[in-house]
């Protein structure tokens, strides 16, 4: 059996490694130190069980789990945490597997034997009850069995087409785009502090606004840093764009 240990603290990973080896030395153990690495490891190694810490830098355990729900064969995930009263309440009330640090060997053994796959309802409830204001740090895209992550900070804009939403982002200095399943409306609600709706079909990153250009046909185009073509601004949203450019 392959087990992925996700924790940002080396000592915590070390301890889990020791305990797991003692329980069964045939376990294959893999490590990751945050959510992003965890997803990379899932893609590369396909573990059976994940032991997931909650508070981690980069991408926390709940968000990583959220992205992992989109792959074809959801994994069994056991959360680990030292102290988190809100999360604990949520775990209790939705029968999610969790372990408290310092983790006891017998508890760990029991959890490994009986852990179940998390379902979407449980996960949504966890997100709701976790009183921290959480928004995703990444958008996940599922392409041919592999989970790709796009960091929110690299994204220029979301553009809605007839059916899909295209995201344009900076992929190591090159402009790239991909199709995602989220709707523009839900994205707008989630990222309203960093993104702005400028048209029925466009949501753009506020920091990247460069200039407004008035066309001869009366349309107004918005130039974004890093994006060659301008995006149309609808009359309804023009004032909010101007307000942000002034401030």
């Amino acid at each position: 059996m392959k087990i992925l240990i996700v924790d940002d603290e080396p000592l915590a990973r070390e301890r889990l490694t020791h305990l797991l080896t003692e329980i069964d030395d045939t376990y294959q153990l893999i490590n990751a130190s945050n959510g992003v690495e965890a997803i990379e490891q899932v893609n590369a190694q396909e573990p059976d069980i994940i032991l997931m810490d909650i508070r981690m830098p980069g991408m926390n355990g709940l968000e990583a789990t959220h992205h992992l729900m989109n792959i074809e064969n959801p994994l069994a995930i056991i959360f680990t945490t030292a102290y988190d009263e809100y999360a604990l309440q949520a775990f209790e009330s939705h029968a999610v597997d969790y372990l408290l640090k310092p983790i006891r060997k017998d508890r760990l053994e029991k959890a490994l034997n009986s852990c179940s796959k998390l379902n979407k309802v449980q996960l949504e409830q966890l997100g709701l009850q976790n009183h921290e204001v959480t928004y995703r740090t990444h958008i996940s895209v599922h392409i041919r069995g592999t989970l790709f992550l796009v960091a929110i900070k690299d994204i220029y804009c979301f553009l809605a087409d007839h059916k899909y939403v295209t995201v344009k982002y900076n992929k190591e200095g090159i402009l790239a785009e991909t199709i995602i399943e989220d709707t523009l409306k839900s994205l707008e609600e989630e990222f309203n502090t960093t993104f702005l709706r400028i048209h029925r079909n466009a949501l753009i990153r506020k920091d990247n606004i460069e200039a407004l250009q008035k066309q001869s046909d009366g349309k107004v185009l918005l130039k974004l840093r890093g994006l060659p073509e301008g995006l149309e601004v609808s009359r309804r949203h023009l004032s909010s764009v101007r307000k942000i450019m002034k401030s």
């Binding site: 915590a12 070390e14 301890r15 020791h18 030292a82 102290y83 310092p102 983790i103």
Partner: peptide
């Protein structure tokens, strides 16, 4: 003191005790 700190420290100690 944050309860976090206490439990995290306990976890560090549990880990260090072996190594």
């Amino acid at each position: 003191i944050r309860p976090h700190f206490l439990f995290n420290s306990m976890n560090s100690i549990a880990s260090l005790t072996r190594t």
